[in-house]
């Protein structure tokens, strides 16, 4: 990125800390939301009754969907830890390998 490229952080602003960068990391939010959704829906799957099962054509869809959402949550969480967000520093930006 060239030096005159506009970034989110004007030169006079204090540099962003890693803690702040993690607060702005979308993967954290996807991980948290799907942890909540996944646990809730999986519990519904474990407590399924025959009427609910019949409604969904015999598929215990809450169980499978809940576990799949927990899987997504884990993937996002692990990804966020293993590949931390890069700090928005134009000089470093060119050097840090980017997520994606």
């Amino acid at each position: 990125m060239s030096d005159d490229a506009p970034t989110g952080y004007p030169a006079d602003a204090p540099p962003m800390t890693m803690r702040q960068a993690r607060m702005l990391d979308l993967r954290t939010y996807i991980c948290a939301l799907f942890a909540i959704f996944g646990v809730t829906v999986t519990i519904e799957g474990f407590t399924v009754d025959s009427q609910e099962l019949a409604k969904a054509a015999g598929v215990n869809i809450n169980l499978y969907a809940g576990l799949a959402m927990l899987g997504l949550s884990v993937v996002m969480g692990v990804w966020a830890v293993v590949v931390p967000p890069s700090l928005p520093d134009p000089a470093a930006d060119a050097a840090v390998s980017e997520v994606g």
Partner: peptide, 11 residues
């Protein structure tokens, strides 16, 4: 309405 049980329905 016809197919989804509560839980997935909310999603």
């Amino acid at each position: 309405d016809t197919l989804l049980p509560n839980g997935v329905l909310g999603v």
